[in-house]
Design a protein around this nucleic acid. Structure first.
Ligand SMILES: [Mn+2]
Ligand SMILES: [Mn+2]
Ligand SMILES: [Zn+2]
Ligand SMILES: [Zn+2]
Lengths: 151, 151
DNA sequence: ATCCTTATTGCGACTAGTTGCAACAACAGA
DNA sequence: TCTGTTGTTGCAACTAGTCGCAATAAGGAT
């Protein structure tokens, strides 16, 4: 069964209607190998279905998020970006200074997940985090010798 | 030295000007014991200084964030909320289902911090996370006995 | 194939947040 | 205290995202 078909079925099985708008949005997110903004999705759908409105995009993305099919994430680009939710999960390390984004595996969060369950009984959604900080290079640069101020 | 004074000094020492607008915004965030939205801050500043514009609020909050003095966080209420950054850090567990917010200590992230440094040389800003998921009560409710569908 | 219920849509008006620009005012220097 | 530089402000116009509502159409039932 195709990836796209799996998404359509999830929608129907949750009791939602399958509209051409939703089908196209799902096709675009399902095919994409990268994070997509709502604007990018709108533009791509419009290419084949000019009538579509941005509300349908946002409402569909919201629905898919509630169903656990996509992850909305703020990667610091000024708009939310969407990505299909797929195992194995992954996260992103984002450098405040140079903007470099590194993809990391979900296993990093295993111990945090365990602690949250054990100590708080909390079942956390640890499926797509954006973690900001300084990459190795920028740490070296912004703390050169610690003797002289950078201006 | 007062809490408020410490914030003012940080601004000046970083080479920024101390305007009455900034002073009032800092006073309000510094005194607040809770997360505040930009709107709430604007309203409180306006009470004493009616002329102030929302741009000054957003720009000041942005500056304070860049200087590491406040944390902006999306707690799922539809607006960003701001809070003074203070040690010890803390994070929040937020239940998708009932909205309950639990405060947790920064120590939870110690092992993640270590792993990111060791494996990626990444110095993460782990000072104020919002972690969504299901609280203990809501897990019990939404997965009752696993034998019968909920509707 | 037709009908009916109601979920979903497009639309327009709204809120949250950002940005370019000209006027203003902090503050360093004299 | 006065002056000049330039960082900061208010403003207005903009982008991102949300919401209420009337029109539409999905899909279950007959
Ligand atoms: Mn991703
Ligand atoms: Mn907090
Ligand atoms: Zn970097
Ligand atoms: Zn709950």
């Amino acid at each position: 069964m195709s990836h796209h078909q799996r998404l359509l079925d999830s929608l129907r099985q949750a009791g939602h209607r399958l509209t051409p708008q939703r089908e196209m949005i799902l096709a675009i997110i399902g095919e994409s190998q990268t994070h997509l903004t709502a604007k990018a999705i709108l533009q791509r759908v419009r290419a084949r279905y000019p009538h579509i409105n941005k509300s349908a995009i946002y409402r569909t993305l919201d629905l898919l998020t509630r169903l656990g099919l996509v992850n909305p994430t703020d990667l610091g680009h000024g708009q939310i970006e969407y990505e299909i939710r797929q195992r194995p999960f992954h996260h992103h390390l984002i450098c405040h200074n140079c903007g470099k984004i590194t993809r990391v595996d979900e296993s990093l969060f295993a111990s945090l997940d365990r602690k949250l369950r054990d100590e708080y009984g909390f079942a956390a959604d640890l499926c797509h985090f954006a973690i900001f900080g300084l990459c190795a290079k920028c740490q070296a640069r912004t703390t050169p010798t610690r003797t002289r101020r950078t201006k």
